[in-house]
Computed example of a mutant assay.
Amino acid sequence: MSQINLELAKRLIESAEKKANEMEVPMVISIVDEGGNFIACHRMDDALLVSVDIAQNKAWTSVAMKMPTSDLAQAAGMGKDLYGINTTNNGRVVVFGGGIPLRKNGQIIGAVGVSGGSVEEDMRVAQAAVDLLDDSELIASLSK
């Protein structure tokens, strides 16, 4: 499978939501494709409304920069090479954790963005989606 379709996006969101429920933190989970195009977004009950845009922008940033947003946080700090990058692209670039590229066979096929908890909580929930993508049986079943 070289791209993300809606069925896969739903499964990734389901995996992330399960982790968020375990943590008892309502989250917004967003999935984009390799071009940063919106595939799906899920807002859990009581998740912050502001988290919708933040989750979508975290996913977009991860694809656009080809890195987790947590890595960008280091490079965008005051005095660093990318300081101020968050003011570009109409403010769409997010420079804190919760966005992670989704890779298959070394290629970025999309990204997940999560918002609603602390940065650490967002990163853990996003990682749950990434971990599901590593499930080769799932990918094989969706490729049929």
Rank of each mutant, 00 (worst) to 15 (best):
G79T: 11
D135V: 07
I85S: 05
L6R: 10
S143Q: 15
N89A: 15
I100F: 11
S2I: 13
G117A: 02
L82H: 00
S141M: 14
S143G: 13
G110M: 08
V94A: 06
A75E: 14
M123L: 08
L72W: 03
K66I: 07
G106F: 11
S51P: 07
I31D: 08
I31T: 09
D81W: 12
F96A: 01
A111R: 02
G36M: 10
E137M: 12
N105Y: 12
A128D: 00
A140T: 14
P26H: 05
N5C: 08
Q107T: 13
V25L: 04
G91R: 02
L138I: 10
V93P: 00
L133H: 04
R103I: 11
N21S: 08
V52A: 07
M23G: 04
G84R: 10
S141P: 04
G116E: 01
M65D: 02
L138W: 06
G79W: 01
K144Q: 15
A16I: 01
I109H: 05
D131N: 15
S136L: 13
A47L: 07
I85T: 01
L102R: 00
L142D: 03
Y83P: 01
K19N: 03
M1Y: 10
L72K: 06
T88E: 12
P68M: 11
V130Y: 03
A111T: 09
P26K: 07
N86P: 03
N21F: 01
I31Y: 05
Y83F: 15
G97Y: 04
T88R: 12
D122T: 02
V28W: 01
V28Y: 06
G77W: 09
T87D: 07
E14Y: 05
M44K: 00
A140G: 10
F38S: 12
D134M: 14
E34M: 12
G106W: 06
M123P: 05
S62I: 08
F38H: 15
K10E: 14
D46T: 12
N90A: 14
E14G: 11
I109D: 02
I54M: 07
M23T: 07
H42Y: 15
D135K: 00
E121V: 13
E17H: 02
H42G: 01
G97D: 02
G117R: 02
S141H: 12
V93E: 00
G36V: 11
A126T: 01
S15P: 03
D134E: 15
I31L: 10
S136Y: 07
L48W: 10
M65G: 03
I100C: 05
G99Y: 04
T69V: 10
L12P: 07
R103H: 13
S136P: 11
G97F: 05
A64S: 14
N105I: 09
S118Y: 05
R43P: 00
E120R: 06
N105K: 14
A140L: 13
D45V: 02
Q56L: 12
I109M: 08
K80S: 13
I139G: 03
V95M: 03
R92S: 13
G117C: 05
Q127C: 09
